[in-house]
Amino acid sequence: MHRHYSQTAPAKWPFPPIPDGKKKAPKLTRPSKLTRASMLADICLVLAWGAMIPGMMWLGVAVGF
């Protein structure tokens, strides 16, 4: 598959140029291990955020906003 490049487009639009093959792409590091406690904390934060939105809407209606 051949790639065709336009000479009129800016150099970094929409993506940076392809490396010339001499440089290797940086290796991706593995994310830190998730513990059960951190997963539980994430779930609690999502549930709290989900309950806060209707709660704020209810308070707004009660105040008359």
Rank of each mutant, 00 (worst) to 15 (best):
M1S: 13
M1D: 14
H2K: 15
H2W: 15
H4T: 11
H4V: 14
H4K: 12
H4N: 11
H4A: 15
Y5H: 12
Y5C: 06
Y5N: 06
S6A: 14
Q7C: 13
T8K: 03
T8D: 12
T8M: 07
P10K: 10
P10M: 11
P10Y: 10
W13S: 13
W13C: 13
W13D: 14
W13K: 05
P14M: 04
P14T: 02
P14R: 02
F15M: 08
P17C: 07
P17Y: 04
P17N: 07
I18T: 03
I18A: 08
I18V: 07
P19R: 12
P19C: 13
P19I: 12
K22N: 08
K22I: 06
K23C: 13
K23A: 14
K24M: 08
A25M: 07
P26E: 07
K27T: 04
K27M: 04
K27H: 06
K27E: 10
L28G: 10
L28W: 04
L28T: 08
T29Q: 10
T29I: 04
R30K: 15
R30S: 14
P31L: 13
P31N: 10
P31G: 13
S32I: 02
S32V: 02
K33Y: 03
K33L: 09
K33E: 12
L34D: 10
L34M: 11
T35H: 01
T35D: 04
T35G: 06
T35E: 04
T35Y: 02
R36V: 14
A37I: 02
A37N: 09
A37K: 06
S38I: 05
S38A: 10
S38L: 03
M39Q: 09
L40R: 00
L40F: 01
L40V: 01
A41F: 09
A41E: 03
D42K: 09
I43F: 06
I43K: 06
I43E: 05
I43Q: 07
C44A: 12
C44T: 02
C44I: 06
L45N: 08
L45V: 08
V46R: 04
V46E: 01
V46A: 08
L47M: 12
L47Q: 07
A48N: 06
A48Y: 01
W49K: 01
W49I: 11
G50P: 00
A51S: 12
A51C: 15
M52G: 05
M52E: 05
M52S: 09
I53V: 14
I53Q: 08
I53M: 11
I53C: 07
P54F: 00
P54N: 01
P54K: 00
P54T: 00
G55W: 08
G55T: 07
M56L: 15
M56H: 05
M56V: 13
M57V: 14
M57A: 13
M57G: 09
M57Y: 07
W58H: 11
L59Q: 05
L59I: 05
V61D: 08
V61M: 12
V61E: 11
V61G: 03
A62G: 02
A62C: 07
V63L: 14
G64P: 03
F65D: 06
F65K: 02
F65G: 08
